[in-house]
Each structure stands twice: as C-alpha cells, then as structure tokens.
Design a protein around this nucleic acid. Structure first.
Lengths: 217, 217
DNA sequence: CTCCTTATTATACGATTGTATAATTAAGCA
DNA sequence: TGCTTAATTATACAATCGTATAATAAGGAG
C-alpha cells in the first residue's frame, strides 16, 4: 500500500521544452528514428512519458520543434565563424568553409541526425520550409562572401560559384562525417579549401586551426 | 465453413528474394524506415507476411540484402557510363560525372533511400563494409579517370583531387535530389562539370545529353 | 497555514510491430 | 493417377508504439 510515487520538481515550460528537444535530438543522432520513442525521450529528459503531451501536441509536433532547433544551431554555428574572422574577404570565406569541415559541425552523428529528418522533411510542409530556408540561407551567405572577393561581384556567376562551393562543403561534410577513418587529421579541411580556391580561382589563406579542446560536450 | 484461402503460385527462391528486396527498397524510398514494415513489404511483393521469414532469417537480414542490392545498382549505373563513352580521357570523366548528376541517379527518393540506411550502416558491420567498399570503389574509379588525364598521373595529388571531385558530385547529388525546384533543368550537371574542370585545371567536353525518355519506371 | 491550480506521475488502451507456429495446398515425382 | 514435400497462407503472441485519462502532489496565492 505504501505507494512510492516518483518525486518531482515543477519546471518552467521553456526549460521542459528545451530538455525534451535536446533529448529527442540526442536519441535521434545516436540510434535513428526507431530509438527516439516518446518513452525514451521522456526518460532522457528526466520526466515520465505522459508529460510530453503536456508540452507538445503530438510526437510529430516535438519532432518539428527539434528539427527547427537543429537547423537553428547549425546556421548560427556557421555564422559565428565569419564574424570572428578578420576583415579580409578571403580570410572570412576561408573561416566560413573551415568551420563546416571540422567538429562539431563535421561529425558522424550530425550527418545521421540530418539524414534521419529527410523523410519527415518531405512530408511535413513546415519542416520543408525550414529545410529550404536553411539551405538557401547558407548558400546566400556563401554567395555574399564570394561576391566580396575582388573581381567576383557579378551576382549571376556568383550564384553558380556558390552552388559549386556549397556542394564541395556538403560533400566533404558528408564523407568526412560518415567515414572519419578514411581521412587524415585536417585532410578534409585542407582539400576543401584548395578545391574552393580552385573553383573561385582565388588564393585563400589558411584559417586558424581549431581550438584544441574548446568544446567538450 | 467454406474457407476462402488466398490462391498462390510457387516461385523460385531467387524470384521471391528479388521481389522482396525490390519491395523493401521501394517502400523505404517512399516512406522511410517506418513505412517498410514486414507486412507492407510482403504485401507489395505479392505474398503474405509469414513468408518473409522463409527466405530471410529476420527483417534485419532482408534489410542487409536490400542495402547490398542498392549499392550494387548504384555502382553499376556509374560504371556503365564510362564504358559507353569515347576513348578520350576527358570525355570519359565528363560522362562519369554527368550520369551521377541526372536521373535516375540524382533523385530525391534515391537520396532519402541512401539516408535511411545510414543508421543501419553504423551498427551492422556487414553493411558498414559494403558502405566503405562502395564509396572507396567509386572514388578509386574517379581517381583512375583523373590519372588518365594528361599531366595528372601522380597518385598522391590524384587522391586529393578525386576526393575533392567526389565531394562536388556528392554535394550536388544531395542538393539536386532534395531540392529539385531550386535548380534549372541541367543546371546541376553544368555547374558540376565546370567546378570539376576548375579543380582539375583541365577543360572538359560537354557530355551527350541524357536520353529523353529512356527510363520510365 | 490552507486552499487551489496545474504540472506531473501513473495507468490504461487500441493499434502495430517483428516473430513464431500450425494449417493448407501447389506442384514435382513415383 | 496418387503421394509426398515444402512453399505458402493463416493465425497467434508478446512487446512496444503513440495517445488518452485519472490520480497525485508541488508550490504559489490568499
């Protein structure tokens, strides 16, 4: 009869939502869609399963929020790289490229996380919108950096160049993330910079090396 | 009492396995992992669910076979492109690149299919092996084509160049497949060829246009 | 201190999952 | 033709899924 009911603390709506989103992204990254069940998500977020639906209308609703949060994080990570760089357009571009080709952006779990959302993105119009906006926003940022280079001001050719450079980044991000053992340390970054330099026919400076142990999850 | 048992025909093991693999790939491409249930797969293959385990030890076993079949198809599609091309090394390379950047290789469902397997690949050692072998095989093929170009015989630099060119192809394949409306007809192919031409510092001829309506699913 | 709101836990429910097994029947062989 | 085998269907089962609802208690208001 002595019922042991789990003790708990009340938290703000914002904290609970963030915890649930973080838990969902972690599980999705580690084990794919099948691992991110409502019970597993709630468990990792430190609550019981029933509470999820107190903060999200449905699991799909939580999935949408998690996807939006992921895309937000990825774009902000890239943008931060250019702001901390110098004023030289070539250096800014190099920093922008480099940050995408090393951890935590270039990472196997990140790639798998992104891949796991693809099918949701196809069906859900809201997620599709976020996907397109994120991709085009990233590419526009790249195009702006390219147009800032000397002699690359023409928008029409800059568009084609930004698509090509974006492809180099995405392709290397994919391969470096999924097959990390196939590349030497820093090789992906180096190849990416020289390829983009060749595409743009513009020399690029070597960006500063990654901070050794700045980000520990 | 008059039991209406579904009529059936006995088929060869090979035919049944192929039908099951094809059905699994179709469902995986259309609706992702959650859509490819054993019942749905059996239904599309024209049999009842119980029979799956007569030809595959488990669903994971079928998944493995389906992945191997997919990778096999993708590599053979790419290899076929170079064999039908002329003897000119640059033309062969251009044909190899072009076939990867237009349907049926560059296709949204194909990308989602590939992405859906990523988490399986991570866990299953057999699938991981197939994945690495396919990727490295494709890249080796690309490297061989590059080394055949005049003045590109050095293996060390050809390796870096093939990684870069492969990234261009993969990135454009990804973006063209997932965001087909963001590109004009033939634009992806054109951008890919000129980017690779710039990376290799070698002019590439325009490959023959895709046959208009050769492949109708 | 007491009451009241509601965040939270606990439990239940129907649907669906992969798997296992029994019941049938198609088709080759004597 | 009749027999035999195993390919195939049909059914059952435990586990787990997302969701819904009732019971409980945390924490601020008065």
């Amino acid at each position: 009869m002595a019922e042991d009911r789990r003790p708990y603390r009340r938290e703000s709506q914002e904290q609970r939502r963030e915890a649930l989103i973080a838990a969902a992204l972690e599980l999705l990254a580690e084990g794919g869609p099948q691992a991110a069940t409502v019970r597993a998500i709630a468990d990792r977020a430190g609550i019981t399963a029933g509470l999820i639906r107190h903060y999200f209308q449905s699991k799909d609703d939580l999935t949408r929020a998690a996807y939006a949060a992921l895309m937000d994080r990825m774009t902000s990570e890239s943008l931060a790289a250019t702001e901390s760089a110098s004023d030289d357009p070539a250096a800014r571009l190099a920093a922008f490229v480099a940050v995408s080709l090393r951890p935590p952006v270039m990472d196997g779990e990140r790639v798998r996380l992104w891949a796991g959302f693809l099918h949701h993105v196809r069906r859900d119009p809201m997620m599709r919108e976020v996907h397109e906006a994120t991709y085009l926003g990233y590419r526009d940022r790249l195009q702006a950096l390219i147009q800032a280079l000397p002699g690359k001001a023409d928008p029409a050719t800059a568009r084609a160049l930004s698509i090509a450079c974006n492809a180099v980044i995405d392709g290397l991000w994919l391969e470096g993330g999924t097959l990390p053992d196939s590349f030497a340390a820093g090789e992906v970054e180096r190849i990416g910079l020289s390829a983009i330099s060749a595409i743009l026919k513009t020399p690029l400076p070597l960006p500063p090396p990654a901070p050794n142990s700045a980000e520990v999850p």
